[in-house]
C-alpha cells in the first residue's frame, strides 16, 4: 500500500442511525471513512445523535439502514476490531487499575480468563502508552476522574483493535486533563496507527488536535472535512450558531461599549494580551487611525506600556495600572 492511500479502518455505506421504536431517524445516509492513524472528532449539538452513531459504528446497536464495514471484514469478530470508551458508569469499585486494563483482553480469553504471556505484553504496552504505570495497583475508587479516563483508554488499547471509539472522554474533566486526554489521543493515532474517533463538545480542543472533523446537526446529515476548512467555510458557525464566539479569530466577541479608540502598537503575545485586556474592557483597537490615545508596548525583561494622551506621556508596568489610567 502506498503512503498516500492510508488503510481504511472503518467505512459506512448509506448509514442511517436512530431508533426503530418509535421510528426516530437521527442521522441519515452517511458515507463515512475512518483512516488508520487518524484522529477524528465527531461534533454536534446535544441530542443530535452522536452517541447513537458511536454505538452503531461499534456494532452495539443496529443501523436503521445501510451498513458499517470494518477493515478485518465480517469474518473477524467485531470485538477484535473496535474498542470503545463510553460514558457509562462502571460498577466494581474493588477492581484495581491493572484488572480493569486486562478486561481489554477478554475477547481473546476463554472462560477461565488466564492471561498468556502475549496478553501480559499487550497490557503492559497499553499501560505504558497511557503512562499510568504509577498507579496500576490502585483501586478504581481511589482514582481521580482524569486518571480513570486514562485507565479506560488503556483498557481500550489493550483490546488491540484497529479502531477506537470514544464518547465524550473529556466530559467532567478540568482543562488540564482535557488537554492531556486529547493530546494523548492525537499521539496514539500517530504512533500506533489506530483510527481514533472522539465524540466531543470541546470545539476549541477539537480544532487544535483533530485531523478531520465530523460535524452533525444540519438536516440529519453529517459533514466532514479538515477542521480549518470547516472554520473558514463557516460550516461550524452555521451548525453551532455560536453566540459571541468568533471562530476565525478564536476569540469571544466584545462590544466596544466605551466608544473610545486606542491606537495600539506592539507585537507578539504582549500585543495579544494587551489587546485582550483592552477589548474586554470595552475599548476599540486601531493600529493607525488618528486618535488622541496611543499605547506603545515596550518589550523586555520587564515589559512596559507607554501611554500618550495628547502631549502627556506616562509609563506603566502592569496592565492593571494602565487600565486605571485610561480615559473612561
Amino acid at each position: 500500500m502506498s503512503p498516500d492511500t492510508p488503510t481504511i479502518a472503518l467505512q459506512t455505506h448509506a448509514l442511517s442511525t436512530g431508533y426503530n421504536n418509535p421510528v426516530l431517524h437521527l442521522l441519515e445516509n452517511m458515507s463515512l471513512t475512518l483512516h488508520a492513524g487518524e484522529l477524528v472528532c465527531l461534533m454536534g449539538p446535544n441530542g443530535v445523535g452522536k452517541s447513537t452513531l458511536m454505538r452503531t459504528l461499534a456494532g452495539l446497536q443496529r443501523p436503521l439502514a445501510g451498513s458499517v464495514t470494518l477493515e478485518g471484514g465480517p469474518g473477524m469478530p467485531p470485538e477484535h476490531q473496535v474498542a470503545v470508551v463510553l460514558t457509562e458508569k462502571i460498577a466494581g469499585v474493588n477492581m484495581t487499575v491493572y484488572e480493569l486494563v486486562t478486561f481489554g483482553r477478554y475477547p481473546y480469553l476463554d472462560w477461565n480468563m488466564r492471561l498468556r504471556e502475549e496478553d501480559k505484553k499487550i497490557i503492559g504496552q497499553a499501560i505504558s502508552q497511557t503512562r499510568i504505570h504509577g498507579f496500576t495497583h490502585k483501586k478504581l475508587y481511589e482514582l481521580s476522574d482524569g486518571q480513570l479516563q486514562l485507565v479506560m483508554i488503556a483498557r481500550a488499547l489493550a483490546q488491540d483493535t484497529a479502531v477506537i471509539l470514544l464518547d465524550e472522554p473529556t466530559a467532567h474533566l478540568d482543562l488540564n486533563n482535557r488537554v492531556e486526554i486529547m493530546k494523548l489521543l492525537q499521539r496514539l493515532a500517530r504512533e500506533t496507527g489506530k483510527a481514533i474517533l472522539v465524540a466531543t463538545h470541546e470545539l476549541d480542543l477539537a480544532l487544535q488536535t483533530a485531523d478531520i472533523l465530523w460535524v452533525a446537526g444540519k438536516d440529519k446529515t453529517l459533514l466532514t472535512g479538515l477542521p480549518e476548512d470547516l472554520v473558514l467555510q463557516g460550516t461550524l458557525d452555521e451548525i453551532f450558531q455560536l453566540k459571541g464566539y468568533d471562530l476565525k479569530t478564536g476569540q469571544i466577541y466584545h462590544t466596544a461599549f466605551r466608544n473610545k479608540t486606542v491606537a495600539l502598537h506592539g507585537e507578539g503575545y504582549l500585543y495579544r494580551w494587551t489587546r485582550n485586556a483592552l477589548e474586554r474592557n470595552g475599548y476599540n483597537i486601531a493600529a493607525s487611525t488618528p486618535t488622541d490615545v496611543t499605547l506603545t508596548i515596550e518589550p523586555g525583561d520587564r515589559p512596559a506600556w507607554q501611554l500618550r494622551r495628547g502631549t502627556a506621556t506616562n509609563l506603566y508596568y502592569s496592565l492593571g495600572e494602565l487600565l486605571k489610567a485610561l480615559p473612561k
Binding site: G59, I90, Y106, P107, M113
Partner: peptide, 23 residues
C-alpha cells in the same frame, strides 16, 4: 455460574461495554 465468570466480570462495566468485549 462458573462458566459465566468472565461474562459476569464484563457485566460489571455495563451492557454496552460487555457487548463491545464480545459477550
Amino acid at each position: 455460574a462458573i462458566r459465566s465468570a468472565k461474562a459476569l466480570n464484563a457485566w460489571l462495566l455495563g451492557q454496552h461495554y460487555a457487548q463491545s468485549l464480545g459477550v
